[in-house]
């Protein structure tokens, strides 16, 4: 009953997990193959049952009287947003976007040298690339809200902690995407430059950067989209932005105001998503 159960799903070869009751025999299904399929199914169902027992969840809880009352009350209040409150939240909303911008820019700038260091066609030494990539993987295992919670504990409540969290998060994401793009560039120009005696710096400036730059900008924009969404909830752990106000309104059970905040955040996020998608399409 430790993390062990997951490998059992390893046998999930072809059959789908939930939809059909039983894998129907196809023309080429042979005996042993079928037993394997059935075994996979049993293991998968056992795993799910074990999970449900472990968290002690009762699906019926969701449909109990209390839950239904709560749900309908919340939804009822949320469907009538308090628009007069909208004028109060423009400032934190702008702050949210600002946190996202600063976090994305600083994180992406820091990511450039690291991406170059971990691309094997720029630095062909495994001694350099493998440790750098390991650090990158470590950074990417920590979710942005965890970073935020830690930085709030270190630097106190406020936008600075949120910005730092996004710096780390964007750094991991942009560096990984960019080094993969760098490794996929056309090796022709690099070989030509090496042949005429270019040094490493010249190679990077005139060979790598012109090819990788559009991808880099595209990833920065993508990271910015992710960061705007992240910045909207950073406030829940005290790291500034609109989340702080949302948390307050939810705690004081003002669901009408919370709904205003959520709707406005959705609008901002969608607008930024569309603008960013448009720009990315023009870039590539």
């Amino acid at each position: 009953m430790t993390p062990a159960p997951t490998p059992e799903t390893a046998e999930v070869g072809a059959p789908p997990p939930p939809p059909s009751k039983k894998p129907a025999p196809t023309l080429d299904s042979k005996g042993p193959q079928r037993y394997k399929t059935l075994g996979t199914w049993l293991l998968f169902i056992l795993l799910l049952v074990a999970c449900f027992i472990r968290i002690d969840a009762n699906i019926l809880d969701l449909f109990s009287q209390g839950a239904r009352d709560n749900m309908s009350r919340i939804l009822g209040e949320m469907l009538r947003p308090d628009w007069s409150y909208a004028s109060h939240i423009w400032k934190p909303m702008i702050e949210t976007v600002q946190i996202a911008i600063v976090g994305t820019v600083i994180g992406s700038v820091l990511a450039v040298p690291v991406a170059l260091l971990s691309a094997t066609n720029v630095i062909p030494k495994k001694i350099v690339t493998i440790p750098v990539r390991m650090v990158l993987n470590l950074v990417r295992t920590v979710p942005d809200l965890l970073f935020a919670a830690i930085f709030v504990a270190v630097f106190g409540i406020g936008a600075f902690a949120g910005m730092l969290a996004l710096v780390f998060f964007s750094f991991g994401l942009v560096a990984k995407l960019t080094y993969e793009a760098i490794e996929a560039i056309d090796p022709g120009p690099l070989e030509a430059m090496t042949a005429v005696g270019a040094n490493k710096i010249q190679l990077i400036v005139f060979g790598v950067i012109p090819q990788a730059l559009p991808y880099f900008f595209s990833y920065v924009l993508y990271t910015f989209e992710v960061n705007v969404r992240a910045a909207a909830v950073l406030g829940f752990v005290g790291a500034g932005g609109i989340g702080l106000h949302l948390d307050q309104q939810l705690n004081s059970l003002r669901y009408d105001r919370a709904s205003t905040i959520i709707l406005l955040t959705l609008v901002i996020v969608l607008l930024i998503d569309y603008a960013s998608t448009y720009l990315r399409r023009k870039l590539l």
Partner: peptide
């Protein structure tokens, strides 16, 4: 603009 909008007075 974004940087100037953020208030960092909360830093301990």
């Amino acid at each position: 603009w974004a940087l100037s909008g953020l208030h960092f007075e909360g830093i301990q």
